[in-house]
Design a protein around this nucleic acid. Structure first.
Length: 214
DNA sequence: GTTGAGCGTT
């Protein structure tokens, strides 16, 4: 019943795949079940989720028993407002079973048990195309934008950064032993760095006594 | 806490 995608797709011999788009990210299969179930017998509902976060991608797949019900749902639930968003119901075109789907009708051939052809498998070679599933960049949103940022490829840069960190550190310790350890503005120590100090901070200083007690 | 064109099994 409400356990969709738990034990995999049940009896997909004859079913119609419907694609529901424009659904809210919070919408779940259980939320669409009562809605689509009213249009007919829903065989199964699957909502693709992200492997990283696990959140819904914003669309779901609904399988009906008959095309009549599927078509009805497309005409009835299509444009329906769900969770505050207008969903779009349409027949699934692509998918793992799309090759065997005709207008939404899954004409999957059932392998006959015991009747295994010993001659030669119709598969010349194994399907190593699994890697081809590079999972197209569907997340063209904030997530992608953030990752699109220029990443530091220069490893030397990182190393140099580390080395540079050591120099001032040594100077600071040395200076501390030689000079007065206390009462030393951090900004002054910074000036000791081999690199030219940036006097850009010498604008104007406000009174330190902002809240002086009376 | 956010986002929004499309096509699916963790």
């Amino acid at each position: 019943m409400a356990h969709f995608g738990r034990s995999g797709p049940p009896a997909i011999r004859d079913s119609f795949s419907l694609l529901v788009l424009n659904v809210s990210f919070r919408t779940t299969a259980n939320d669409l079940f009562p809605l689509f179930d009213r249009c007919g017998d829903v065989v199964d509902i699957h909502i693709p989720r992200d492997r990283r976060t696990g959140d819904s991608r914003g669309f779901a797949f609904v399988r009906y028993k008959y095309e009549d019900e599927a078509q009805r749902a497309v005409d009835k639930l299509d444009g329906r407002r769900v969770d505050g968003r207008d969903i779009m119901v349409q027949f699934a075109k692509y998918g793992p079973n799309a090759e065997r789907i005709q207008k939404g009708r899954i004409v999957e051939e059932i392998p006959k048990p015991g009747g295994r052809p010993r001659s030669h498998s119709p598969r010349p070679r194994y399907r190593d195309d699994y890697r081809d599933r590079d999972y197209r960049r569907r997340s063209r949103s904030r997530s992608a934008d953030r990752y699109e940022r220029d990443r530091p490829r220069d490893k030397d840069f990182r190393r140099r950064s580390l080395s540079r960190s050591v120099s001032p550190d040594y100077d600071r310790r040395h200076s501390r032993r030689s000079r007065s350890p206390a009462r030393r503005s951090p900004s002054r120590s910074r000036s000791n760095s081999p690199r030219a100090a940036t006097p850009s901070k010498q604008g104007h200083h406000r009174s330190p006594r902002s809240q002086s007690p009376t």
